[in-house]
Design a protein around this nucleic acid. Structure first.
Lengths: 133, 133
DNA sequence: CTCAAAACATACTGATTAAGTGTGAAATAA
DNA sequence: TTATTTCACACTTAATCAGTATGTTTTGAG
């Protein structure tokens, strides 16, 4: 499973914020309810998005979250990378420090690299705006 | 991590068998040694490949494994599917029986479906023969 | 017929991760 | 001052991965 609920839910929250731009700050309660996800988990994920500066936040009563940029400025790849912290389809591609000793003449590594590039390109070619309706 | 060691190692074993065709039956001991994987784990994975009829097997002394078909007849997608049992990049695509109630107007589902199709196409377009050298 | 070498079967273990919950603190508008 | 919000962090539960241990069955060679 390449992408977990963290990445999936985060995208849905971001889309929700995008579609409700102009309604001011949106609370985790609203997001959680609309997306059918527990408020507690929504809090956690939104905090993570906030820490990555994808959203602007306002504490206290009347507070909540709004997008920090225009929907068209968010690449899906960026959001997923922040939430997943490892988006590579195969472990071989993760370990940069002590590279696999077989890498030099591994028969499969080029295939994994191509796949990885393809997936990255896919997500870099889509923005939040593309997912709105 | 889309693809685990089961899939990765299985591919390497299959390539090894392909590159050593004509040497008769090849034992798990040889495979394990050449690929740097424990013999015990190699046994398990080879048994799985055997159960899926990717290899022909011979018990007892002098026994081992040989390919059941020509390398060019194996699609990578088939081998991975047998070893991984879930190759979809996102859980949404797994649950056919009780489909997600939001599927109808989910903003993200089409993207996941496109990604899934892209990955499947990728692996269907490569055969064992393509990975030999 | 016996023995060693092979596949095969199955249960177990240890570590990691995912997915989420619980508790409570800090900030802020009304 | 109070209610509402974000934020921080520890905890739990379940699943999965990766691999090992133990033992059985099959089979060719001597």
């Amino acid at each position: 499973m390449l992408i977990s609920t963290r990445g999936r839910y985060a995208l849905r929250f971001m889309i929700d914020l995008a579609e409700n731009q102009g309604d001011g700050y949106i609370t985790t309660r609203e997001l959680a309810e609309r997306q059918g996800i527990s408020q507690k988990y929504a809090e956690r994920l939104m905090a993570l998005l906030s820490k990555n500066n994808f959203v602007k936040t306002q504490h206290g009563k009347g507070g909540g979250y709004i997008l920090a940029q225009e929907p068209s400025e968010y690449k899906i790849s960026e959001i997923l990378a922040a939430m997943e912290e490892d988006l590579s389809p195969v472990e071989c591609l993760t370990c940069k420090p002590n590279e696999c000793p077989r890498a030099e003449n591994c028969r499969t590594l080029p295939m994994w690299q191509k796949l990885d590039a393809m997936i990255n390109d896919f997500f870099e070619g889509i923005t939040l705006a593309d997912l709105m309706k």
